[in-house]
Design a protein around this nucleic acid. Structure first.
Lengths: 333, 333
DNA sequence: GAAAACTCCGCAAACGTTTGCGGGAAAGAT
DNA sequence: ATCTTTCCCGCAAACGTTTGCGGAGTTTTC
């Protein structure tokens, strides 16, 4: 069976398509009586407006694209939740793409975004992305684009992130305040902007407290799995380490595993703090003190920012915004 | 700036729109020379085909809708990954909706799916969904629909799930084989089809081994958080319990927290096994034996099934399929 | 009682793409 | 030299929706 169109309703009710269209959008030119007839018929034949045809006429797709490098269990679900909430309440729809951390795929995705005539793009960059030239096509096509989470410093596109330097600074400062001086920092791939900044925050906290920064106390791993080979030797040999800072939930989880494996007790033998989305730290025992970096909040903010710049293109020429983080003191320090 | 259309390219190259269209789709009627001119121009002005207009002409949107009741950290990411992989390799795009476990919202979403003229719908039902009448509109509009994970027994729509009875039967049988007789079963909301079946599997395993089924050893909770009040008293008072079976990662996580809180050692003091997506059990120490219920695999299967029934509507009149599960023996029993 | 105002609805065009059909030009066949 | 074939390409219609404009019928105004 083919879908019911306005034309069909027009024939059925012996009205013109224009009248149907206006009746459905509650146009004042149409009498209540007619409106009711139309509405009842539309319901009966379960007519729904064809958004492609509407776009075709109006040139607004009411579609937002979300481009993610990957889906991980710790951050992405809440990020999407936050975005989705905003999308829904603004009557948009969300089309999702995953770049698998591939620059090539990311470029293809951008083309697809243009094909779909999305009104805005929310993108978290792939590992392999070091310049933003592929996004310029969006600008030319007048499609707004907001970077979030995994971003690159740039002048063209606004970014929504946390203040990574500040977050890790907070975390490490907290450890220091609690008396720790020999602090192991565990970070992601150091090519990442995000990792570099979090390392900076670590170093800043150390420097401010006049604690020497030891190269061997800063660990960068491409995948959390690499910790399997790196962490146990460190924990076994370097008995001076009294605290660990991990820059993400994923690294936290892996670290906890090895800590527990070695039968170290938290926080008696070793303390640990992490930057975290804020769900995982409550699942472990003891619960992990962390700097809360809410994915949901970031998603919401980024999405609102994007929608704003779509509806009021004049106004929002900001370079983006910083989502605040806060220390959650639990039981691991 | 407005987007570049075929019309624009036609003007620029002094060709007709039909020639441009055919050149871009590599039609044999067009000479290589012309094709190259067109391709170069298309690249230069970064033309991308307007999929809405194409749909308008061809009536195929190449869009698949994914409707989920919620996003949780344990199952959803891998489910989406599996779906996405299949979608991408088949040149479709994915539009995602979240019902927040609301029937009302789910109905709205179905309408939106029709508005978007999606070619297929993958849906995991909300908690509040007890009949499928709202999906009939899809059938009428000739939109294929496949239920996955959270499903309802029915004749109209194919389902893709695991064999819940078998999975929990496997888990509990394994515990029994290892010598456990006093087994606590922890399940989700018992309104759920999925919970009911997993309870059945538990009971089946017990019955087959002539172990009396104790009402108080079957716990159903609406939210995993409810375990906070339920589990500690049980673990404290009912010292006979030597093993726990949880029907999901979420319940597993909560249970582990309380086991660790009470300083019970796994598997010395108590054993535990779960049905799991298979990521989380490796993060804990000790690692948790589980029945692997791969979200990725389920997503892939469901999606392939859907795409199949779209391209070959005649063939696939099956009632769905069962994704296999398997026991992963780790360290918790 | 005629003009003015108001109510309600239809006409037709436009959005970008695809595709059946047809046609002109060049090349080959007779 | 004429006819047929082949090679390229253009014409035009259709998909469903919205909206400015105009118009027929009814009511109000002086």
């Amino acid at each position: 069976m083919k879908r019911v169109t306005i034309k069909d309703l027009a024939k059925i009710l012996s009205l013109s398509t224009s009248t149907i269209s206006r009746a459905l959008s509650d146009h004042p030119d149409i009498s209540e009586a007619t409106k009711n007839r139309v509405r009842i018929a539309a319901d009966e034949f379960n007519y729904t407006t064809n958004v492609h045809a509407r776009f075709f006429r109006n040139q607004n797709s009411r579609l937002i694209a979300l481009v993610l490098p990957e889906l991980n269990m710790f951050f992405t679900p809440n990020l999407i939740k936050g975005i989705n909430k905003t999308i829904v309440s603004s009557n948009y729809s969300l089309i999702t793409f995953i770049s698998n951390d591939s620059y090539k795929r990311e470029k293809e995705i951008i083309k697809q975004c243009m094909s779909w005539a999305v009104e805005g793009v929310l993108i978290s960059l792939s590992k392999e992305t070091f310049d933003l030239s592929h996004l310029e096509a969006l600008t030319k096509a007048n499609i707004k684009c907001v970077l979030l989470d995994k971003v690159l410093d740039n002048e063209q596109f606004p970014s929504v992130t946390i203040d990574s330097i500040e977050a890790s600074y907070q975390a490490v400062s907290y450890l220091i305040k609690k008396g720790h001086r020999n602090i192991l920092g565990i970070f992601g791939n150091s090519n990442f902007n995000i990792s570099q900044e979090r390392i900076k925050g670590y170093e800043k906290a150390m420097r401010e407290n006049n604690i020497p920064i030891l190269k061997e106390n800063i660990v960068s791993v491409d995948k959390s799995k690499n910790l399997d080979f790196i962490l146990p030797p460190i924990l076994n040999h370097n008995k001076n380490i009294t605290a660990i800072f991990t820059m993400s939930d994923e690294l936290l989880a892996k670290s906890l595993y090895h800590i527990n494996s070695l039968r170290l007790s938290i926080p008696k033998d070793i303390s640990i703090i992490s930057i975290s989305d804020g769900d995982y730290p409550y699942l472990t025992h003891p619960q992990i003190s962390h700097i809360k970096d809410s994915g949901s909040k970031m998603g919401k903010s980024a999405c609102k920012f994007l929608l704003n710049s779509i509806t009021k293109p004049s106004l929002s020429q900001d370079s983006g915004l910083i989502v605040s983080t806060k220390l959650v003191e639990l039981e691991s320090v």
